[in-house]
Nucleic acid binder design. Structure first.
Lengths: 190, 190
DNA sequence: GCCGGGAGTTAGCGGACGTTAACCCGGACA
DNA sequence: TGTCCGGGTTAACGTCCGCTAACTCCCGGC
């Protein structure tokens, strides 16, 4: 009975997750109460426990889902000529950052509010995703130091993920084009 | 039992601020209790109120100080040929990010845990700092759209500030060199 | 027409946290 | 030498929060 219902539209659950992402992004995990979250989806307080075993579990589901989606997206684009792979990875990460900025924010803000087990799992997923970037960069620039590649990858994430912070009201595709160009240009400096 | 006051020893206040920065960076503002913070500096709990009127005031002092230092550093380097100014700004921001990663983290993680007044003040300082970058970029690339310049500036911050997230144990000056090169290269893509 | 269970409600518990109160103590100095 | 006072202590208060309990209601299947 505790088995997850794999129905095709548990809309409440998803609504809660989406709303939680927004609130956590704005106020931080500890800055959002169960009651507030409930109110934000139109139910109140303890009703959330009909859908999630607890607040931490909710955060865990959010973060695991994000990192799994990033990893899956990365894997889909990992094969081929390194320059094309890199371009695809940049576009993918950029798309994610532009379309779901809350998730980007939550992921690096509240990672350590997770219980140990989930945190380790998320870290593992993230590390694997980064390794795709590292491998691609090293295929493109043979002899590049792995640590340097890792620094470059994280730097590129910072660049591409900067849109949530800049709160730019400029036209989204111009922002996208600019950041893509900056990222690809930066990565020629290796 | 109080240690004899050595002149250049950091005062209690400073010790508290420094320690708070580290703890806030690791666990977030709401994730650190007054008692924990007190314990971390060797006193316990309410003694902090001898030095600060409250927890929020402590955070405010941290954040205002950070953004004032950034702005001051930016202003010092703002005059001269735009390419040289830009290089100096990159080096400055990079230095800050490498030497005080906790402050970088706290600044964009806990900004909205500030009381209104302080938050507005910090935002203002930050905006002014960004404008130095924007002006420099537009002097370097005449006709560059101001919004685009702003996006580019924030992107560069993201790139340069990525070191706290990457937790790289690579040699610091190699990291610095790599990120500086990436940033300056990226900014040629405008 | 019953009835079983998913989904919601309010009441309440226990613990943590920020803050205040009341007290203490050691040293600088008139 | 007596007195202030800065900086520390512990106790306690009030609030908020996560979570549980107990109850209600709607609705689909037999």
């Amino acid at each position: 009975m505790a088995a997850p219902r794999v129905d095709n539209a548990p809309s409440r659950r998803e609504q809660i997750l989406r709303t939680a992402a927004g609130l956590f992004a704005r106020h931080g995990f500890h800055g959002v109460s169960i009651a507030e979250l409930g109110a934000a989806v139109g139910i109140s307080g303890p009703a959330l426990y009909r859908h999630f075993p607890g607040k931490e579990a909710l955060l865990a589901e959010l973060l695991v889902d994000i990192s799994e989606r990033l990893l899956a997206g990365g894997r889909e684009r990992a094969t081929g000529e390194p320059d094309e792979v890199l371009a695809a990875l940049v576009d993918f990460q950029l798309d994610f950052a532009l379309h779901e900025p809350e998730l980007i924010v939550v992921q690096d803000r509240d990672l350590d509010n997770l219980p140990e087990a989930d945190r380790r799992r998320v870290r593992r997923l993230q590390r694997t995703y980064v390794e795709i970037w590292v491998d691609t960069l090293r295929r493109l620039h043979p002899g590049l130091d792995p640590d340097a590649a890792r620094v470059a990858a994280h730097g590129t994430f910072g660049l591409l993920n900067s849109t949530p912070h800049s709160g730019s009201r400029a036209a989204p595709d111009e922002v996208a084009g600019l950041l893509r160009r900056m990222a690809l240009t930066a990565l020629t400096a290796l």
